[in-house]
Design a protein around this nucleic acid. Structure first.
Lengths: 113, 113
DNA sequence: CTGTATCCAATCAGATACTG
DNA sequence: CAGTATCTGATTGGATACAG
């Protein structure tokens, strides 16, 4: 679809899933949003960086969400065979396409009290 | 904030909440997204319209989400004292400001398989 | 028609301890 | 450091019946 063409909102037509719904199914939980936000900003982060960056997330939850995002091809996991171990998570090109969504999320957030 | 100025993504600075996080806290559940999508498209809808439009939602869940959205000022509830009763939900001006987020959600969804 | 009341299932998430 | 294991609690959501 041409990005210059004004995009109208639509619901799904019978037999196909609404594209908005598809996106929500991919990125639609609180921590998923915040992990993607951090990686969109920083590009690459280690597990411990993400853990520190997001106030309140537990290592279990972070691990689960990272796996999910990796399966969806939005982030990439790189293991460096060092001691102590180092694992880096990087946003993929597909993940970078989410940036305009986050720009709009921020724009709206700035209008909130 | 000037909408012409290019917006950079940021995390929250100490002492203030990240605007992206604020937005997620307001609209960040599956059904909330889909209710807002429907009302952004149609402007005004009745309870039963929404129930029919969203495959799978139960009246209980719909009722809860509508109340939440009304409290946040994103939609407005209008009761017509008729028999049988008629209740219409309308997107507010504040709710309309979410449209650009949904445009981007759709744009990304169109790239998904 | 527009909800609410119940009851129950599933998902998500927090705390903490522990392993390679 | 980078997770996993375990246990527990909170939130979300579905089914159904029913009330105003």
């Amino acid at each position: 679809m041409d990005t210059l063409e004004p995009l109208k909102l639509t619901k799904g037509t019978p037999g196909e899933i609404c594209p908005i719904e598809k996106t929500i199914d991919v990125i639609g939980t609180k921590w998923t949003f915040l992990i993607l936000r951090d990686l969109l900003i920083d590009g690459t982060l280690r597990f411990s960086d993400l853990l520190k960056s997001m106030e309140g997330i537990s290592p279990k939850t972070l691990s689960l969400r990272l796996k999910q995002l990796e399966e969806q091809g939005l982030i990439e996991r790189m293991v460096y065979p060092e001691v102590p171990p180092r694992v880096e998570y990087t946003i993929t090109d597909k993940g970078k396409q989410l940036e305009s969504i986050f720009i709009e999320l921020k724009r709206f957030g700035l209008t909130l009290p």
